[in-house]
Design a protein around this nucleic acid. Structure first.
Lengths: 230, 230
DNA sequence: CTCGGTATGATAGTAACACTATCATAAACG
DNA sequence: CGTTTATGATAGTGTTACTATCATACCGAG
């Protein structure tokens, strides 16, 4: 339950039960729901996405899908949480034997900005599409009138857990830095926003001709964070 | 039409014509639309907000409101743009005779984090409510599948203009800093996000007991930006 | 004072959306 | 073998996001 040493073994991601009505990872329909909703949301955007459309796509029915999630908003929170949990796992996996905290933080930044390299084997999910959803739609998960309720129900646990993990490293690098949590949440948000801007509002970024957006964002964030910590 | 030297004179904020179908600042109904939509969106949130509800509230009709804005998304973009334009004006007004660029940037940060102190006289709009809308909903203005179209139509001009203005000061402080635009857009986004987190997801921030959220966010951002520029 | 445009209101209608309920059925499990 | 359990099929409801049409009230020009 703790570790899965074999590549082939399915990585079991445990999420807050209150995110769903029925666990989509337990059943065939649930897994199709997840895999296809990721593709569909990526294609048409979250506002255009409906359970009806998804049902047609996976040749199921609206009613069946509503048995898994109360509504599409909960599904979004679920998908995003799943991504954060997966990212936490990736980070743990790639940094657990790196003793230098600065080096560990750099590795985390790398993983954050290259979040799409989800090994396809992990689940049947399209990692690149899920990453695009996180970039484009993740903010909508908490920018609602229900934030406080949702938060109390623990729906943002995975995000907060990830942030706390990174903040710990920040404090390890510089224990006197007064804003580790703010720095980390700014970091997490900025990663996505800058990638979004690079694609859609380039005047808000500094895109270098010869570099990819990810590399530029990484360089910017590395510079920002380590200067803040000195 | 160009300048209004008297305090009592209504500040005329010129926005991209493509933001609206009919200029809401020109008519009585338009101004009521603006003022009341701000209050209503603030109260119930953008997803719950409908033209129908607003029409009932201002004792008009749905059809009449649709003559001003294509849909509620355009209205949101308009309101947010209005805020950015107003903020640009505030910044120009308060910094035009400050020679030191570092001091100017600090003033800008102050104005950004205290954006709610909209002098009520400016329009009939509720400045505090509009600021809350900017914090809670502004991201939704561009996080859509239509970003590129909307951007091409110039709907985000005010935001980009504001960012460019601040970026110029950043470059004035340190002309060799390689990421002025990224720093500024990160700054603008982080301001809102951190205020949101302080209110709803405090574990993502470092809230000091004796300080207000605005002061803490200001201190954090000032530290972050000036360290980045040294 | 009349004429013509302009802003608004009143009313109606439509397609899609966001569900909820009920009943049938087939597989899985004990 | 009987009973849960998951799914499908179908129907229905209230709301949303518009669009269309027509009436009316006002306002400025001739």
């Amino acid at each position: 339950m703790e570790t899965h040493p074999f590549a082939n073994t399915h990585l079991r991601i445990e999420l807050n039960e209150r995110l769903y009505l029925r666990d989509p990872q337990q059943t065939d329909l649930g897994r199709r729901l997840m895999a296809e909703s990721i593709k569909l949301i990526d294609e048409i955007g979250f506002e255009q996405f409906t359970f009806k459309r998804l049902a047609i796509r996976i040749e199921s029915t609206e009613a069946s899908l509503y048995r898994y999630f109360e509504n599409k908003h909960r599904l979004l929170v679920y998908l995003v949480s799943w991504y954060w949990a997966w990212l936490s796992y990736q980070i743990r996996f790639h940094t657990h034997n790196v003793p230098n905290p600065a080096e560990r933080l750099r590795l985390m930044l790398r993983i954050l900005t290259r979040g799409h390299q989800c090994d396809a084997a992990t689940m049947q999910v399209d990692g690149a599409a899920l990453y695009r959803i996180v970039v484009n739609e993740a903010s909508k998960a908490y920018l609602t009138k229900d934030v406080d309720q949702d938060n109390q129900a623990g729906l943002f646990r995975e995000y907060k857990r990830l942030a706390a993990g990174i903040a710990a490293v920040v404090s390890e690098i510089n224990p006197t830095y007064p804003y580790p949590h703010m720095l980390v949440s700014t970091l997490l948000e900025a990663t996505r926003k800058q990638l979004f801007f690079a694609q859609h509002l380039p005047s808000l970024t500094n895109s270098a001709e010869q570099k990819t957006a990810e590399e530029t964002v990484y360089a910017f964030l590395e510079n920002l964070v380590f200067k803040a910590l000195t």
